[in-house]
Nucleic acid binder design. Structure first.
Length: 568
RNA sequence: UGCCCGAUGGUGUAACGGUAGCACAACAGACUCUGAAUCUGUUUGUCAUGGUUCAAAUCCAUGUCGGGCAACCA
């Protein structure tokens, strides 16, 4: 039955329809996609959509998906990013599409830079066909000669060099005879094309820079348009799926492949709209400023939409994938409400999280009719959604802590927690009644003195009494302390940068709150991989800052909170 | 004022010439030892104007609005 369900939710989008069509026609012997990030930054939630699309297609159609470092610009790239990309991709596809992951002969990701020799050969082929030439125009002149979208460009004065001269010059470029920018290799297409990308685009530029993967082997580096289509070709990619901004590059992608007389089937490019989540920022540059300005603590700050931040926040790969699937794949540029993401997280965590009692903002409660030296242990279920998760025991004693929010001296209408003279049920324990409110000299409530209906504990004779409110609690004597980091959206506005606004002006001042929580003692033995639901408060995961002496929890997300919206 | 792409409730997405559906959000109710979850229900939509057709969200035309493209970035 579950397979029926999974079939019915199999996403059908226009790209999958195309692939399905190709599979039906037997157009390719095997479907091969790729995920090709440039290692110049950290992966984020937008990349997750692309990963899920590419690996998802490979998975659904029995193909593979190559992880490829699109590393053709040594000036911007670094192994630090290569390593983080590998870790992030692994995290997201483990136990889901690991089998689809295509790696090179040494079990490593593919690197565009591994094709530099082959790419160079293709460039020489193009020159020999009279379809590429070495141009001596400076970068500024190249720009001027290109014209504008509504105005044709002019031919470079170097456009008609002979094949032999071009071959000679290109080999000198490779040999390091020229400084950066002195000349470039260009495709000879059409300087009057309405598509500016077809106006003799650059294929190679000179960069006397060491490359993180190829070291100092090269001083000329291919540009994206030349390297990408051919890397796809070399790897046997069938469907090269990228975002919308590359749509106008597609004619160039095809031109290069089609003008090389290549023997194998050519890859085709397809474009989709990238993910734009509300209430966050995904731009690499802005992410860097937030890290550098200390707005967040680092690339893995749990408030960030980076995959490392998302992972540290405790969001599971399953939840992220579910979200990526829900948002769909189209060519319509849209703003995706972050609530969809939050729902996917809650949905996932609700099913797997172990329930625990913990108090974030404690208020002392004394049960005056409960003996001082007495301790009872009450049974509590670990997960009502999953009975096999078992039960545990929670100690109860005369002095407790409850959540400050769960008491109101002058309660608003429909408040069904604790109030003077009112009753509330302590989850898994007794129904208590508030007899007395004790305040300090400032009028701040410091303690509640209550009496318990001692027959009302779970299973007891009066346990069935209708009590509207049930609250969580911990035994003061047994509670353990933990740091709880409470996260909220980083921005107060759906579109932080709407109309050119500076995102710094719409930062959420309470995107991080740190409190010392009091937790039930079973939380002493926590597992890093485990997710917990602190009942009525939200989902939590152990942070890596935890030490043997100090527990640190990250709140992944709150529970849906209807009351806070109702309350005046 | 060039070329390319797009437009379905508040948001995202489906319907492939034949009953506008799903999810999120919102609201109301049921249930509840989590104001969660679950269940039930409600509100809200085909950018505009023409055309083709027995029939148009879907095809055509025009317009409007939005986006992308002029790095020796990807």
């Amino acid at each position: 039955m579950s397979s029926d369900i999974s079939k019915s939710v199999t996403p059908a989008d226009f790209i999958r329809e195309i692939v399905a069509q190709h599979v039906a026609e037997n157009k390719y012997s095997r479907i091969v996609t790729r995920f090709p990030p440039e290692p110049n930054g950290y992966l984020h939630i937008g990349h997750a959509k692309s990963i899920c699309l590419n690996f998802g297609i490979a998975r659904e159609f029995g193909g593979t998906c190559n992880l490829r470092m699109d590393d053709t610009n040594p000036a911007k790239e670094d192994v630090e990013y290569v390593e983080s990309i590998k870790a992030d991709v692994h995290w997201l596809i483990q136990d889901w599409a690991e089998q689809q992951l295509g790696l090179n002969a040494s079990g490593q990701p593919f690197y565009a830079s591994d094709y530099f020799e082959a790419l160079h050969g293709f460039a020489v082929d193009l020159i020999k066909k009279g379809k590429a030439y070495v141009c001596d125009l400076s970068p500024a002149d190249t720009d001027a000669y290109r014209g504008a979208p509504d105005r044709p460009g002019r031919n470079s004065p170097w456009r008609d060099r002979s094949v032999d001269e071009n071959l000679d010059l290109f080999s000198k470029m490779r040999a390091g005879a020229f400084p950066d920018g002195a000349c470039s290799l260009r495709a000879k297409i059409d300087m009057a094309s309405p598509n500016v990308w077809l106006r003799d685009p650059l294929l190679y530029r000179i960069r006397h820079v060491a490359h993180h993967h190829t070291g100092s082997a090269w001083c000329i580096y291919p540009l994206y348009d030349f390297a990408h289509c051919l890397s796809d070709y070399l790897e046997g990619i069938t469907h090269s799926i990228c975002t919308l901004e590359f749509e106008v590059h597609r004619p160039l992608y095809d031109w290069i492949l089609e003008n090389l007389d290549l023997p194998k089937t050519l890859p085709r490019q397809y474009e989709f709209a990238k993910l734009i989540p509300s209430h966050t920022i995904v731009s690499k540059r802005k992410l860097i400023s937030m890290v550098q300005e200390g707005i967040v603590s680092g690339w893995d700050d749990p408030r960030l939409p980076t995959l490392s931040g998302i992972r540290r926040r405790g969001i599971t790969p399953n939840a992220l994938r579910s979200f990526a699937t829900k948002v769909g794949v189209t060519k319509y540029i849209s703003l995706t409400d972050i609530a969809v993401y939050e729902h996917a997280i809650r949905d996932d965590l609700n099913a797997i999280a172990l329930r625990r009692l913990a108090v974030l903002r404690p208020l002392k409660v004394v049960i005056t009719n409960y003996p001082e030296d007495r301790v009872e242990e009450f049974e509590a279920v670990n997960n009502p959604e999953k009975p096999q998760a078992g039960k545990r025991l929670i100690p109860f004693s005369r002095e407790l802590f409850i959540e400050r929010d769960d008491f109101e001296e002058t309660p608003p209408p429909k408040f069904f927690r604790l109030k003077p003279g009112g009753e509330v049920r302590l989850k898994y324990a007794f129904i208590i009644k508030c007899d007395e409110v004790i305040k300090d000299s400032n009028g701040v409530v410091t303690e509640l003195r209550c009496t318990a209906d001692l027959d009302s504990r779970t299973g007891g004779v009066t346990s069935g009494r209708k009590i509207k409110g049930t609250i969580h609690w911990v035994s003061a004597r047994h509670a353990i302390q933990a740091e709880a980091r409470l996260y909220d959206r980083l921005f107060t506005e759906a579109e932080p940068e709407k109309d050119g606004r500076d995102f710094r002006t719409v930062l959420n001042p309470s995107s991080l709150e740190i409190v010392t929580a009091l937790c039930e003692p079973s939380l002493l033995s926590t597992a890093a991989a485990e997710r917990y639901q602190f009942e009525r408060l939200g989902y939590f995961v152990l942070d890596r800052d935890t030490t043997p002496n100090k527990l640190v929890f990250n709140r992944c997300i709150t529970l849906k909170d209807t009351w806070s919206k109702v309350k005046p």
